[in-house]
Every structure is written in structure tokens, then in C-alpha cells.
Amino acid sequence: MLKSMTGFGRSRGQRSGYNVTVELKSLNSKFLDAQIRIPKNFLDKELELRSQLAKGLNRGKVSLSIDLVNEEGGVDAQQVNESLFKAYYSDFERLADEVGAAKEDLFRIALHSPDVLIPQMEDEELLKEQWGFIQEHFQQAIKAIDEFRMQEGATLEKELKNYIANIDTFLKEIAVHDPERVLVIKERIQKHQQELSTSDIFDENRFEQEMIYYIEKFDISEEIVRLTNHLSYFNEVIGEKDSQGKKLGFISQEIGREINTIGSKANYAPVQKLVVNMKDELEKIKEQLLNII
């Protein structure tokens, strides 16, 4: 069963005093690349979340967003450091008097000066309750994105099987053309033999040995057998319980090697056209595998 690395999952919940929204988005990546945005009160939980993402999603460029909003609509409850605010305001007011500047914005400037507004400290019991609620919806979001990935994977599986079937069809056509290909090569060599036979230095035994050598060199029967086995193995791996994107990538490389060898040995236009068609299908496979876990 294949899984796509592209996915989306969301979970929302409400509890007395606050709401939680967890969103997960993922795109393809060779490794887990997680970008995490969480409330300030839970910044110390980032490593825990990364570990859970690695376990639940395995691979992908992942974006995690967790919002904790109180019922009044505030994201983070804040309190004012009054003594620091007054100190800022007093200094700004004094400086304004010295330079003759207007004082209309002093309150706003002092209020937004460094460390004047600070997150309101929550009691430990409330933080523990909120984190448990966040975890509950985080796991639901993981489940949602996993289901999304499975649906996308099922679509990709059908496409990959279709591409493999196309390669197999072209390969069978090559097998049909192969006897006539060998005959054409033999006739070509025999024609050269007739042209050379009039030469005084012509050695018939040596020529026959070389002809056998070249016919064996152009033989593609082993490549046909190996490529057939690779195609069968590809379909077998697709049907495994766990998604095997990297393994399928390795098999596709082996498929490519056999196709290239057949192309280099073919020396016959109808076969080479079929090789081009197989390469086209293989490129489609490689492109899709980039998005498979």
C-alpha cells in the first residue's frame, strides 16, 4: 500500500475557556523537514512534537501549526510590567521635554518597548490540561493527514501500475521483433562477407568467429528476462503492506539499466522506437516516486 508525501490534516476542539486548532501540511522531501509554530507557553515541547512527527509521518516537508485561543479571542494572554512601563514613559517624557517633541505617542511607544508586555503566567495545572488537549487534537490531525496520504497513494499506485504495464507491453513487442532483428543483422553481416570474400586476405574461419561474436554481443534475450523480472518485482513491492518509495526507486534504476542496454544493443529501428517509449514511461514512474513515502 503506497502513501503519498502530499497531505493535509486538521483537528479543532473547544474546552472551557479556550479553543485549539491543529493543522498539518506536507509535501515531498527526501527526509523529514518540519516547520513548527506553537504557542509560546509550549515552546519547550517542540522536540517532543518533532519526535512524534517523525514517528507518525516518516518523511516529507511538513508544516505544523498549533493555535490556542482563549474565548475572548486573544492568542496569548499578556500582562504589563508596570514598573518598567513607568520607567520607559518617564524617560521618554523627559527626553521629549528636552528636545521640544510632541508627547501624543509616548504611551503607545512605552507600552510596546522591550519586555513591557510579557506572556501571562499560567498555573501548572492549566498548562498540563491545555497540553493534553493539544496532544489529543495533534494525534487526530496526524490520523487525518495519514488518511489523506493513503488516498493520494492509492491514486499514484494505479498510475504506477499502468506505467509498468505499458513498459511490459513494449517489452513483449520487442520480444516479437527480436527474431527479425537478428535476421536483419545476419543478412547485413553476410552482405559484408560477400563483399570481402573477393579479397586475397579474406579468412573465412576468422570471419565466422567474428560473426558469432557480434551476434552474441547483439543478443538481448538476457536483458528481456531480467527486465521482465524487475517489472514483476516492482508490482510485488507496490502490494506490500508498508509504503516502499525508496525501494521502488532502486528497482526503477535497475529497470532503467536494462532498458538502456537493450537500446544500445538493438541496432534495429523498430526496437529502438519501443525502447524510447519504455524510457518515456520510466520517466513518468521516477517523477511519481518522488512523492512516495
Score class of each variant (00 low, 15 high):
F170T: 05
E122G: 12
E208D: 09
E159A: 14
Q190K: 07
T155C: 01
A101P: 01
Q120C: 08
P114V: 03
L196E: 04
I185Y: 03
R181T: 06
E147I: 09
A101Y: 04
N205I: 13
D200Y: 00
D203E: 11
K128F: 10
K217N: 09
D178H: 13
E122M: 15
F107T: 12
Q140L: 14
K143L: 12
E173F: 02
E216G: 02
Q190F: 01
T169M: 09
L111K: 09
Q194L: 07
K103Y: 07
I145L: 08
S199W: 08
L117V: 13
L183K: 15
A165G: 12
F107E: 08
Q139P: 03
P179C: 05
L171M: 07
Q194H: 00
M121F: 00
E157F: 00
E222S: 06
E157K: 12
Y214L: 12
K128A: 15
D219F: 03
I134V: 15
V225T: 14
R108C: 04
M211F: 02
F133Q: 07
I118T: 13
I167W: 07
Q140T: 13
L183H: 07
K191V: 01
Q151K: 13
M121E: 12
I201G: 00
K158M: 11
D203F: 03
G132I: 01
M150K: 12
G100V: 06
L171G: 03
H192S: 02
S197A: 15
Q120L: 15
V116W: 07
E216M: 05
M121T: 14
K103E: 10
Q139L: 14
S113P: 00
E173W: 00
I212C: 03
E180A: 14
E187Q: 14
I164Q: 10
R206A: 11
Y213D: 01
S113A: 15
E180L: 10
E223S: 06
R206G: 06
Q190G: 00
H112Y: 12
L183A: 15
L156P: 08
Q130I: 12
I142F: 12
K186F: 00
E187R: 11
R149F: 01
K172N: 13
L171V: 02
S221I: 11
H192A: 09
K186V: 06
F170D: 11
Q194K: 13
E222Y: 03
V184M: 09
V225W: 04
V225L: 10
D200G: 01
F148C: 12
L156Q: 08
L160T: 07
F148A: 11
D200F: 00
I118A: 06
K186Y: 05
V225R: 09
H192L: 10
A102F: 02
D123R: 10
V225S: 14
Q139G: 01
I185Q: 11
E208H: 10
D200M: 02
I167R: 06
L127S: 15
E104I: 14
E147H: 10
F148G: 06
A110H: 08
P114F: 06
I134E: 05
E210F: 01
E147M: 10
L196T: 04
A141H: 05
V184G: 01
A175K: 12
P119Q: 09
T155Q: 12
Q140K: 15
E216C: 03
G153F: 03
